[in-house]
Amino acid sequence: MSAREAVLKRIRMSLKVTDDENRKRTVAARLTEPPRGVIPARSQVDHDKRIALFVAMAEKAAATTERLASTDAIPQAVARYLRDRNLPAAIRHGDDPILSALTWDGTQLRVGHGAAADSDTAALSRATVGIAETGSLVLLSGRDNPTTLNFMPEAHIVVLRASDIVGDLETAWGRLRHIAGRGRLPRNVNLITGPSRSGDIQQTMLMGAHGPRDLHILVVG
């Protein structure tokens, strides 16, 4: 008997059950129609309040935010942010259609493409969804927004369309199922809430552990 069979058998013995049709139907039903559970009321608000809540929660988690009228304003906002933080005039991003369409001519920034290298100091990504309840960003792995960009550089700048901000995590899953298909996810779904930190030295939170020291969110539209 394989380990898999042995463990399954032992679970059934301990629970005093068999893999009967009733139990299978219960499980299949939950997997295809997941119940939503308890959703905090504070996230169930209209569009404008949702954006305000997202910004407030992201800032509570020590991210910084900036509101832009359109995607055209992104390159200048990125250049300004790097200059203000005294960071090198260089940025890297993936093949995301919104980011690929940007023109950087007026910024004097060095623009790289693709996955992050250890020498990168700042990266630009686009979040697929923002979650107002906690101020979290949802980033998906792939060519459009390589995962290493989220973690390796010291500064991470993330573009989020205001129309992509949802109230709660459960609504975000609904959107991802629409994009990736039911029961499937890309290699990584990264929920990011503020910049990296550690509380491991005397239980005091210090910013900038292994990931970015700064997380800046550009809310567009």
């Binding site: 988690a61 792995s141 060519r143 290699r187 990584n188 779904v189 809430t193």
Partner: peptide, 19 residues
């Protein structure tokens, strides 16, 4: 309210993933 990085990982990198 939420830990900084909550990461869902599913399988290895896909065919055209850069990392």
């Amino acid at each position: 309210d939420m830990t900084v990085y909550t990461t869902f990982s599913t399988g290895p990198r896909r065919a055209d993933d850069p990392d």
